[in-house]
Amino acid sequence: MAYRTLDITIISAEGLDDVNLVTKMDVYVVASISGVRKLTRADKHGGTKPKWNHHMNYFVAESALQKPDLCLTFTLRSDRVLGDKDIGYVYVPLPDLLAGNTTSERVVEYPVQKPPEEPKGTLKFSYKYDGKFTPPHTAAPAKAHEPVTAYPASVDSSKAGAAAQAKVQEPVTVHPPNISVSTTVAQPARVAMAYPRPPYTYPPQQAAGGFGYPPLPQEYPVPAMAVYGYPQPQVQKPKKKKG
């Protein structure tokens, strides 16, 4: 499909409707063809007579230029803090821009409309078409995981039997290996837990009657415990009376 480049330079506007009540308008333009939008900068000092001299281009199909309903649309807006507001619109059918010599730049003016009101103000812009061109076609990507047919090298028939020759002449279909990624999570190695060794015991000794353990050591003598108490009262003998 052939395409053409449409070069546009949005120059200026005059006599626009002032949509701001207090401050001066900061006007910018939004250009669009088939939903493709491009914006200019906002003129901070122009007010109702903004100037831009902003250049942009579009790539338009040659077949689309013959459609009468295809338009180049300009939307003039005021940049405001509390929300932008539309000032007006300009509709330009693309077949109208093809009339006459389109290889050289042409300057045109169109009225700025704002239904249902009467048109107020004009928009000035220039345009030109460049030559036709065809975008290069990109090669289709190679299909992955396709089987490949390979033939082995020839073998001397004098050294191979009939069965070997039959296998050599058969084509071999080679499939790419399927690489599978294991999702199993490695478990941590188990640590062997050892219990403490039991305390050392004397080995059994052979006694007269069999096997047994040695006698326990002799216990220490228990010292006699002192007895604490009050002394017994002494009984006094009665005194003998004289004579």
Rank of each mutant, 00 (worst) to 15 (best):
65 L>C: 06
118 E>N: 14
84 D>I: 03
111 P>R: 02
61 A>E: 13
63 S>I: 10
94 L>V: 01
101 N>H: 02
92 V>F: 02
52 W>G: 03
82 L>Q: 14
121 G>K: 03
68 P>C: 02
82 L>D: 15
120 K>C: 14
135 P>Y: 02
105 E>T: 09
59 F>N: 15
51 K>E: 14
106 R>P: 04
134 T>Q: 11
57 N>G: 01
53 N>A: 12
130 D>M: 10
93 P>E: 03
48 T>M: 14
103 T>R: 05
111 P>D: 12
128 K>W: 07
66 Q>N: 15
76 L>T: 11
125 F>V: 10
65 L>V: 07
88 G>W: 01
73 T>R: 12
78 S>F: 00
120 K>E: 11
134 T>H: 11
80 R>Y: 01
100 G>H: 05
50 P>Y: 10
123 L>V: 10
76 L>W: 14
77 R>C: 08
58 Y>C: 06
116 P>Y: 07
133 F>V: 05
49 K>G: 04
105 E>Y: 00
69 D>A: 07
100 G>D: 04
99 A>D: 12
52 W>L: 03
52 W>D: 09
74 F>Q: 05
90 V>S: 00
134 T>D: 14
84 D>A: 07
112 V>F: 01
89 Y>V: 04
57 N>K: 14
59 F>E: 15
67 K>I: 13
106 R>D: 04
97 L>W: 04
90 V>G: 01
125 F>W: 08
129 Y>V: 11
